[in-house]
Design a protein around this nucleic acid. Structure first.
Lengths: 228, 228
DNA sequence: GTATGTGAAGTAATTCACAGCT
DNA sequence: AGCTGTGAATTACTTCACATAC
């Protein structure tokens, strides 16, 4: 297929997951894999995987499956992760410092090349070889360092301000860790990592679904069954 | 409505967002709000909000709107966040330590009461008033401390092991920060916080959608329009 | 007049199922 | 025989629009 029509965000999310799984599978030495096998490993249906891939082209060998390395290269290219991206981080608190120290980012090709804060005690300090800058230097640094992605790890009260600063200096992709409802202009992609919501979903499940199940389990004693 | 039929996870996610917004609105002193106003603030449609709420009951005043505090209490109860939850954290690396130090969790009612690691250099050390334990003590501690939620911040290679340990000692709700495809038994709720996927979605957007748009913007020069 | 709650309508996402290729 | 790619069918989700209540 591979027309240029709107691809659902859920498809992209899954592509990323397929890609990671393919990496693991490749390390195991497997050269070819069917949509069925891949699906079993990561908990998606074979049909789902084939449909998702069909948005972008035909990458499989009929009767055989997908060449692991080839498919990985294709998906990496689709996702745009066959290159490096420079990232600016706003907020040098607990979360910010953990993100900076976390080796995953660089490993995946996302380099945090600048960190900003408004705390005078922090500005000028060196962290993981990066000097924390005053937020007022944002626009200049974004231009100089070709930064395309902004990460936000500031208190909720100031998160919208940071978003506005990011977008007004040309950043079109934002990863937000602040627990606040922020808005971005048309043409800017925002992804929220919302720990409060994640925990609250778990809380809902424990309160409304798991308990019911455990009552049932209690009644049928201890048959170790997960059947549902 | 409020029947006991299956509620979509997306609904729960939004309830959490409505709840946070209601908190902010309450602080501003507003006592009553319509679904329309609430929707405008957080970027959802009024119909969506009303439909979501209708899964659980009728909480509004026809012709007026919703009493902010009342609705907040109702949603908090639905989500099960009108109580405290004890959380076990596996992994005392960079990310784990940031999570532990992060004040949000406790503030939202999720107390990290135990931390586990397999690094002998870390075990026994005190962190934020919690002594890091060997992972072998997990089952005992989970029981003693009435821990219901497990958070995973370990390297991907061992994440499935931790999941299995958590589930086999009765934990039914897991927040996973490890970038790995893990599976849980039926009856256990897993939420993934997947930074690699989040970043890759942004990368996809920049590669496939934002660039196209900026070409268009380039052609029409600088009309500042966001028109979609 | 105003805003809820909700069937009905309309979209979107997923799964089915099979023709067609190797 | 085995597995992809994809229309068709199904299921899930969202929006519409209005009767109803204040």
């Amino acid at each position: 297929m591979s027309d240029k029509r709107k691809i659902a965000e859920a498809v992209i999310t899954r592509l990323s997951i397929y890609n990671r799984a393919l990496g693991e599978i490749g390390k195991e030495g497997l050269e070819i894999i069917s949509s069925d096998e891949l699906g079993n490993r990561i908990g998606y249906s074979a049909a789902q995987i084939r449909k998702d891939l069909s948005c972008f082209g035909e990458f499989g060998e009929v009767g055989k499956g997908y060449f692991v390395q080839d498919l990985r290269d294709v998906i990496s290219h689709i996702l745009g992760v066959d290159r490096k991206w420079n990232v600016a981080l706003a907020g040098a608190g607990h979360l910010g410092s953990a993100l900076l120290a976390y080796p995953g980012f660089k490993q995946w090709g996302f380099n945090i090349v600048a960190v900003f804060d408004n705390d005078l005690a922090k500005i000028g300090k060196k962290w993981e070889s990066i000097v924390i800058q005053d937020i007022s230097e944002l626009a200049k640094t974004v231009k100089e360092q070709d930064i395309r992605i902004g990460a936000i790890a500031v208190p909720p009260q100031v998160s919208q301000e940071i978003v506005d600063m990011f977008t007004s200096c040309g950043i079109r992709a934002i990863l937000n860790f602040a627990t606040a409802s922020i808005t971005v202009p048309e043409g800017v992609k925002l992804r929220n990592v919302d720990l409060a919501t994640e925990l609250e979903c778990l809380s809902y499940f424990l309160t409304n679904e798991a308990e019911v199940r455990s009552e049932v389990l209690g009644k049928i004693k201890n048959s170790s069954g997960e059947g549902g």
